[in-house]
Computed example of a mutant assay.
Amino acid sequence: MAIQISPSILSADFAHLADEAAAVADSADWLHVDVMDNHFVPNLTLGLPIVKSLRKAAALPLDCHLMIEDPDRWAPAYAEAGAGSVTIHAEAAKAPVRTLRTIRSEGARAGLALNPATPVDPYADLLPELDMLLLMTVEPGFGGQRFLDVVLPKIRRARELVGTRDAAVWLQVDGGVSAETIERCAEAGADVFVAGSAVYGAQDPSAAIDALRAQAEQAVGR
């Protein structure tokens, strides 16, 4: 599978989200939307109304990452709103299989996210229900955090469980992805990269995405 870059609008200018989405439309693969509820994580960000509006304004498909309590209740609505991918947290979902299947039935890709301290092996049996496995490489809740190298062995283990880079399940990393860390993530097995401040903190977000993609591709020999 080709390397994919999903810039996070958590690091964008919220007053001009349509313009910020357009700034990366020609270079990114997805637009990552961090949904936080101030309960599952200690921050409050974007919700369903913003996703509905972004879906109309953004050319890129939306990659919605739900860092919320009760994703079993709320996740289907994000798929119904037109998100191309909806990811729920294993730590919050009480009925993950049902929820993942519902997301898929609404036409979106279904993802499962794991916090840095959550082991991947207990969820190996759920891989057939997934389109993407997201490994947090920072503690969820805030952008701009320092990358946690301790997660690298888990990325390698996840790649072993998922299979080769041509496997059906994508392996995404989110948190602290930058020019200094993306090669390590790619070498460990990730193929989808969420980058916030490394993209929207750059003078030219589109060029920053191109540079990150080139680094990841070089790291895996593509």
Score class of each variant (00 low, 15 high):
Ile155Glu: 13
Lys154Asn: 07
Leu133Ile: 02
Ala167Val: 01
Leu114Trp: 04
Leu148Gly: 14
Thr181Met: 01
Gln215Phe: 10
Val150Glu: 13
Asp166Ser: 14
Ala198Ser: 07
Thr164Asp: 15
Ala113Trp: 03
Val120Gln: 10
Val192Ile: 13
Ala188Lys: 01
Ala167His: 05
Val150His: 11
Leu134Tyr: 07
Ala186Thr: 01
Asp174Ala: 05
Ala167Thr: 00
Asp131Trp: 03
Ala208Cys: 03
Ile209Phe: 09
Gln172Val: 00
Ala202Cys: 07
Val150Tyr: 07
Gly107Val: 14
Pro153Thr: 01
Arg159Cys: 00
Ala93Gly: 07
Tyr123Ala: 04
Val120Arg: 11
Trp170Ala: 14
Val151Met: 13
Gln203Met: 05
Leu126Gln: 09
Ser206Thr: 02
Pro96Glu: 05
Glu106Tyr: 14
Leu114Ala: 08
Arg109Phe: 04
Gly143Thr: 10
Ala207His: 04
Ser105His: 08
Trp170Leu: 12
Lys154Cys: 06
Leu148Gln: 15
Glu183Ile: 05
Thr118Ile: 11
Gly175Thr: 02
Thr99Ala: 11
Lys94Glu: 11
Gly141His: 09
Leu114Cys: 09
Gly111Phe: 04
Arg159His: 00
Val199Gly: 04
Thr137Leu: 13
Ala179Glu: 10
Gly196Gln: 07
Leu148Ser: 14
Gln172Glu: 15
Leu152Phe: 02
Arg213Glu: 06
Ala167Phe: 02
Met132Gly: 13
Ala168Pro: 01
Pro128Val: 06
Leu112Thr: 10
Arg104Leu: 09
Cys185Met: 02
Leu100Asn: 09
Ser178Met: 02
Trp170Gly: 15
Ala117Tyr: 06
Cys185His: 01
Trp170Cys: 08
Val151Trp: 03
Val194Ile: 06
Tyr123Trp: 11
Thr164Gln: 15
Ile155Gly: 14
Val162Ile: 14
Leu148Pro: 11
Glu217Tyr: 12
Ala167Trp: 00
Arg146Cys: 12
Arg104Cys: 07
Val169Phe: 08
Gly175Ser: 08
Leu152Ser: 14
Ala93Cys: 13
Gly196Ile: 04
Thr181Cys: 05
Asn115Cys: 10
Lys154Pro: 11
